[in-house]
Design a protein around this nucleic acid. Sequence first.
DNA 1: AAATATTAGTTGATATATCAATATTATACC
DNA 2: GGTATAATATTGATATATCAACTAATATTT
Lengths: 142, 142
Amino acid sequence: MEKLNDTFLYTIDKCFRSYHQFAQKNVRKAGFKITIDQWLILKNVSENPDITQNDLSKLVFKDKASITRIIQLLINAGYLIRETHPGDKRRVNLTLTTSGEKITAEVEKIAFQNRAAALKGVNLELMAEMKIALQEIINNCS
Amino acid sequence: MEKLNDTFLYTIDKCFRSYHQFAQKNVRKAGFKITIDQWLILKNVSENPDITQNDLSKLVFKDKASITRIIQLLINAGYLIRETHPGDKRRVNLTLTTSGEKITAEVEKIAFQNRAAALKGVNLELMAEMKIALQEIINNCS
DNA sequence: AAATATTAGTTGATATATCAATATTATACC
DNA sequence: GGTATAATATTGATATATCAACTAATATTT
């Protein structure tokens, strides 16, 4: 029987965890008290100002319950404002505060460096092919 | 500025989550009340009977605190036995119970099907190249 | 318009992730 | 042999993941 840690999906798992830890460590080392997951939400809200929590959850591939909780922490930290949508009272309007915008931009720089460091030496063409293959796997799982 | 969900590492994240959810769903649908993470521990213990929790944590790339807690749940469920190692009282000896061995083997079949379904249509050579590239990323992050 | 279905978001329960601090035992050094 | 150091595992605190059940609001149907 094939050993578990020889499998391809095991390597993906490991790669993802490995990068996540690396990225989180660098953000912390730079003095920011924010998690990668929290930053990811801020970043996506700033990229898509009218987004709902539901769509946000699809975008980052997390459960909507997780989104609710991460957003609550971001509000507590003063990075995000939540208001009910005027046109649809079920929805919420999410807006970055000034300090939210500030930290988003600052951590963005670190995120950029993290990605560059993580992908150093990996062939660009291969990366493009890999993206397609990964997308195929995602489709297979949906 | 590059949109976040265009990045390669974002796709890896998504692929991993997507597969994990898919795999967990199939295990549950088959009637097993065990999580993928718990099964992963059982499987690795059965593959490496003398392993320590520390090495286990490196193998599955999780924190040793997580390992302690997952193992506690597996003991509660009657799948695993934990004893102190006779030669080194700091260490623990982990042994699968009969029902632990049974569920490990049964879920293994589903895991095998899951992997096959997830990787359907993905070129084998590309997969080999990808494994090398992913390993490179892992190294970059270490 | 009333009944029904759908959608957006929250909450409870449980599992996992991570860091930091701790207890216990083993090993290295002197 | 005793002391400092290292290794193994646990625990506390907090963040995240997921399902299921729920509330409230909107959309659809009849």
